[in-house]
Write a protein that binds this DNA or RNA. Structure first.
Lengths: 114, 114
DNA sequence: CGAACATTTAACCATATGGTTAAATATTAT
DNA sequence: ATAATATTTAACCATATGGTTAAATGTTCG
């Protein structure tokens, strides 16, 4: 089982818990973007977006490259890998209902032939 | 692409962002547990654990069945499915480095034989 | 009934979060 | 040098989060 108390997991899941930040990540799947471009779709102020970017950066989900006065942000999905792995351990628990149905059907098959 | 603004995703990722809650979920993989049992491993008070349980319940990750004075909590991992799916969309972005290496190696192979 | 038990609710506290506006910083363009 | 642009920092605000202790609720036991 993946370790539970991980600052990285805290920060990753924490960063992903906000819809604006998830949308920013989605924007970045199209390639690097500067802050103003990233902020355009939102009604909130630039500083608000700036804060979200720092959260994403803190979680390692986003990398910044200063290029003159524009900051170019790019996605770095690696931290999601651990999060994915953590969740993966629970897959069998959300698939359990199918497993149980499967077991039940097998039991039926074992009985029927008699 | 999975929808970004989802209260369910907010609550799921939010619930998973805390190490105590992740550990509680792990405890519950062993089957249903009552509050006192769940609280035993932690240094925090019972009401604190109770709050964490409400967060997990709010995210639908935990179900409660009152049985007399004891509340029996069980895991319900289904909300993780959507979270998993959301993260899954980013897999290629953390595998990109391998992809690039792979491409590079293929290029080398195409050159070597000549 | 009255005591013990399992759990929650209430009230409180400190800090974090997500937002704002105004000012500061740094870079580019005129 | 001045103005415009890109971005952050600062100060502030409201609400959320994660914890506490003390009291309330409901259930079981003697």
């Amino acid at each position: 089982m993946v370790k539970c108390s991980s600052r990285l997991l805290d920060r990753t899941f924490g960063a992903l818990a906000d819809p604006t930040r998830r949308r920013i990540l989605e924007q970045l799947t199209g390639g690097a973007r500067c802050v103003t471009d990233l902020a355009r779709p939102y009604r909130m102020s630039l500083p608000a977006v700036s804060k979200h970017l720092r959260v994403l950066e803190g979680a390692g989900l986003v990398r910044r490259r200063r290029d003159g006065r524009v900051h170019r942000l790019r996605l770095d999905a690696k931290p999601m890998q651990q999060a994915q792995a953590w969740i993966e351990e629970y897959r069998r628990f959300w698939e359990q209902s199918f497993d149980r149905l499967d077991e039940y059907l097998k039991q039926l098959q074992n009985k029927e032939p008699k």
